[in-house]
Nucleic acid binder design. Structure first.
Length: 272
DNA sequence: AGTACGCCCTGGCCGC
DNA sequence: TGCGGCCAGGGCGTAC
């Protein structure tokens, strides 16, 4: 399940390969991929012959800047971007739904078992307004004050962390991990957080995302980097998928509840 | 405005 | 061994 850290790791791995390189051919074999906007043929046509000027990230989205247009890719639950060339072992299978061949012959494949991901073209100038994403949590603009402004209303703090229009890039894993590190129960109403708790949560969000990047992401099931390698951060999870196991701080069994249709993990002793 | 629920989709797992 | 049924869950649409 790629969240901000996984997308950032993939982006950094791909930048030296794709930036400045021209797309020689494009094949999109699964029409579901382009469901948000355009058709596979239209997306292919917008890609062929274009040069990747920059590869950026916005929340959980990749933004391939092609000049006037940008290619937007979101991995959903099981999407993978794989960088390879013929002869190095990778073999496209029935889950490989798109393939971009770059000048020089190397290939960027999009593989996605559950097809929750998507791929579409936007005019570069309208990317920001179309994606409608909140603040980047690793950007200097994300201050404790900014978090406090977001923490309004009666929504539960975990649901708020998952709301991409408020903060971009946090998913289920990093939300649970950030709340544990901040000692805040996921069911707390956002507006009830005290200033000290907001500052602590702000620190925790940034720390957990940076740790995720440092350890090359969390591989629960399907996450792989562009070379097919899993991330290591899962070994450092303190609550996520640890239900029933002792809390690493106090020994209380980690509890799992469902909140906003999401599995939610927390320590009932450490998180108040 | 917040929350619940169904939908998309498939592999993995459980029970029989 | 095999098969039906359920579950995971990001984001979106719909309903209350």
């Amino acid at each position: 399940m790629p969240e901000l850290p996984e997308v950032e790791v993939i982006r950094r791995d791909l930048v030296p390969h794709v930036e400045g390189r021209r797309i020689r051919s494009a094949k999109i074999a699964e029409s579901r991929l382009t469901r948000r906007r355009g058709s596979p043929r239209e997306v292919e046509a917008a890609l062929v012959g274009r040069r990747v000027r920059a590869l950026r990230r916005r929340g959980k989205f990749f933004v391939f800047d092609l000049g006037r247009d940008s290619l937007i890719v979101r991995l959903g639950m099981t999407g993978q971007l794989l960088w390879w060339e013929s002869g190095d072992g990778f073999c496209p299978d029935q889950h490989t739904h798109a393939q971009l061949t770059f000048a020089g012959g190397r290939i960027l494949s999009y593989r996605d078992i559950r097809k929750f991901g998507e791929m579409f073209i936007l005019p570069t100038a309208s990317v920001e307004q179309t994606l409608r994403l909140g603040v980047e949590p690793l950007d200097p603009a994300f201050t404790p004050e900014a978090l406090r402004r977001i923490c309004r209303g009666s929504t539960r703090i975990k649901s708020l962390l998952l709301d991409q229009t408020k903060i971009a890039g946090i998913g289920n894993i990093y939300a649970d991990e950030a709340l544990f590190r901040a000692g805040i129960r996921p069911t707390r109403r956002a507006a009830s957080l005290r200033w000290e708790e907001i500052r602590s949560l702000h620190r925790s969000i940034r720390a957990v995302l940076q740790a995720g990047i440092r350890h090359r992401g969390s591989s629960i099931a399907n996450y792989r980097d562009p070379c097919g390698q899993p991330g290591r951060f899962v070994a450092l999870h303190r609550v996520y998928h640890r239900q029933g196991k002792p809390c690493l701080s106090c020994g209380t069994p980690v509890r799992r509840i469902v909140l906003g249709q999401r599995g939610t993990h927390f320590c009932p002793t450490c998180q108040r």
